[in-house]
Design a protein around this nucleic acid. Structure first.
Lengths: 116, 116
DNA sequence: AATAGTGGTTTCCTTTAGGAAACTAGTTTC
DNA sequence: GAAACTAGTTTCCTAAAGGAAACCACTATT
């Protein structure tokens, strides 16, 4: 019984950590944006828009702002003509690599399981 | 340029896989429910409700149904008095362990990063 | 002068997610 | 007979997510 209580309170913290992660990455597009940046490196706004299939510019803009606020990506304006804007993962953003690989692998695994 | 095209089309499939995963687990509660079942094994409805802090019975019921439809958990009614219902991860559900551990670890890592 | 490309913003709308509270129905304990 | 526990369902509501289309300001090309 003592074990059960310890397990339960230890569990709460771990479950909360899952919630933190999902609060940041939950939603239809954010994790796809990060995955795309992981696979392609630095990208401009329109490149991202073309690569992340189906996203509306408004949504892309909003999600990029939120990801920047959370220090997962950087936004740098290049004074070219016309001006271009580059988005890139921060070192902290790159720590999502394992998680995103797992999400990719499991998605493939699940698709195979359902089509069994 | 040829490389860029190949990278891009290969990328699409991987990004789609991420989308599949998030479609199933995105939302506030599903991944927490699975995480709780991973940590505690077989659980009854009320046990889950107490363990997954803050979830409303309606939401718990609905999410459990969806997880069962996707073959991630099983629901078995025990003919005890009063009847009890046991929820348990399927083998397929247990393949989410790596992903969930990554989500946990990254949540903790991110919290530390922000509190730097 | 018109067209296209840059990186977005604005407006309007629909859908979905989620929450609070009350309720159901059967069983068992007090 | 009242209270409490089992496992949910029903109703009503709000907030957030997301999408379509138009628009904006600037620059470069034709």
């Amino acid at each position: 019984m003592k074990q059960k209580i310890e397990l339960s309170s230890q569990c709460k913290g771990q479950i909360r950590a899952i919630g933190d992660t999902m609060e940041l990455l939950g939603g239809k597009w954010k994790i796809k944006i990060i995955g795309t940046l992981l696979l392609n490196g630095t990208m401009r706004f329109m490149e991202l828009k073309r690569a992340v299939d189906g996203i509306a510019p408004k949504k892309l803009s909003k999600d990029l702002q939120e990801l920047e606020l959370n220090e997962l990506i950087t936004r740098t304006v290049k004074e070219t003509k016309p001006i271009t804007v580059e988005y890139e993962l921060t070192p902290h953003g790159r720590t999502l690599e394992n998680l995103i690989n797992e999400a990719m692998n499991w998605g493939i695994h699940h698709r195979n399981h359902i089509l069994k």
